[in-house]
């Protein structure tokens, strides 16, 4: 058996390496362009803002790796936050209220997954439906009015301090490590990727694809609810319109991070780096006092170029590696 010289590892982590380079280039540029950028207060700000995106994008990485999509995460974050707020208003403890909010997120996720898997309906349209449904519920149960004023033990989750860091950052870091372990090393992660790669192969191996698909969306619902916790706690307000467009931001980060929209390939590290990159970009544009309209434009351009680059590279790159692998295999 001849071993190929071309190990596939560099090929696999190449998009992430490129992201890191872009990230470094941005950091260097911004450090030179503004004396405020490389200060701890500012960086802390970047991490703080990115942590929300990271938490949501982690769940989204699983969904997209499995070949699906979840458009309901922003609305689910709002609905969960509202549920936590109502539970606390109703006199329940902070811990129980948070658990209720997470359960609501998980429930909507499981509902997403059930309809998608059991009835075999396109995830785009199903989660679009649940997006509207969750947003509608959040508006109905609050009467459209934000709920505010929570116990300190709750707002700590958004604005507390743990040394120089804060709970959302640590939550994001903890979730990222957990997600990386689960996606790359657990059976659940293996099946998530297999679902995206070839669902039929997994089914024929005797694995319950319904169970795993529902679990993937359930997980995404729970991470959306965790995002809802962070938003609600940070603002000390449960806002039924919170998390607007958050689904698109997290999908963008996941795709920018190198996870394949076709499914079968997912990178937690890539998602993490992409969230930081987008966070630094937003921060940098503010520091350089570039009008916020340009933020949208620039973020759009970055995402498009990243996706086009990845696609072109995979078409060319895969074809050439393919030939090499074949010719060396005797």
């Amino acid at each position: 058996m001849k071993r190929t010289k071309i190990k596939l590892l560099p090929g696999n982590i190449f998009p992430q390496l490129l992201l890191i380079l872009v990230l470094l280039a941005m950091v260097i540029f911004l450090s030179v362009a503004s004396p405020f950028f490389l200060t701890w207060d500012n960086l802390r700000n970047v991490f703080d803002h990115s942590s929300l995106y990271i938490i949501l994008a982690l769940g989204m990485t699983f969904v997209i790796s499995s070949g699906g999509i979840d458009l309901s995460v922003g609305a689910v974050a709002a609905l969960s936050g509202v549920c936590m707020a109502l539970a606390m208003q109703g006199g329940l403890g902070v811990g129980i209220s948070i658990l209720i909010g997470l359960a609501v997120g998980g429930l909507v996720g499981a509902a997403n997954g059930s309809v998608i898997s059991l009835l075999r309906i396109n995830p785009f349209i199903v989660t679009l439906g649940f997006m509207s449904l969750a947003r509608g519920l959040a508006l109905i149960i609050t009467g459209g009015i934000p709920i505010y004023g929570f116990p300190r033990a709750f707002t700590w989750w958004g604005s507390g301090h743990i040394g120089p860091l804060n709970p959302p950052m640590l939550l994001a870091a903890f979730m990222a490590v957990l997600a990386a372990l689960v996606l790359n090393m657990s059976r659940f992660g293996y099946y998530t990727l297999a679902l995206g790669g070839n669902e039929e192969a997994l089914r024929r191996s005797g694995v319950s694809i319904h169970l795993y698909k529902i679990m993937v969306y359930l997980l995404c619902g729970v991470t959306a609810a965790l995002g809802g916790l962070v938003v609600t706690a940070r603002l000390n307000t449960a806002e039924p319109l919170a998390g607007w467009m958050l689904e698109l931001d997290s999908i963008a980060a996941v795709v920018l991070g190198g996870t394949s929209m076709k499914g079968g390939r997912g990178s937690i590290a890539g998602t993490l780096i992409a969230c930081l990159l987008l966070g630094i970009l937003r921060n940098g544009l503010v520091i350089l006092s570039i009008p916020s309209y340009y933020q949208q434009l620039l973020i759009g351009m970055i995402i498009l170029s990243a996706v086009i680059f990845a696609e072109v590279r995979s078409r060319k790159g895969l074809a050439s590696t393919h030939k090499k692998e074949r010719s060396t295999a005797v």
């Binding site: 090393m185 657990s186 059976r187 992660g189 293996y190 297999a194 790669g197 997994l202 191996s205 079968g264």
Partner: peptide
Amino acid sequence: LALVDCRDAASNIFLGREPLKAAFFV
């Protein structure tokens, strides 16, 4: 063939029968 193209040969051979260590890690 019902193989998962983007996964490696070992993962395909053990698909649905992955051995575990520490009850969690494949």
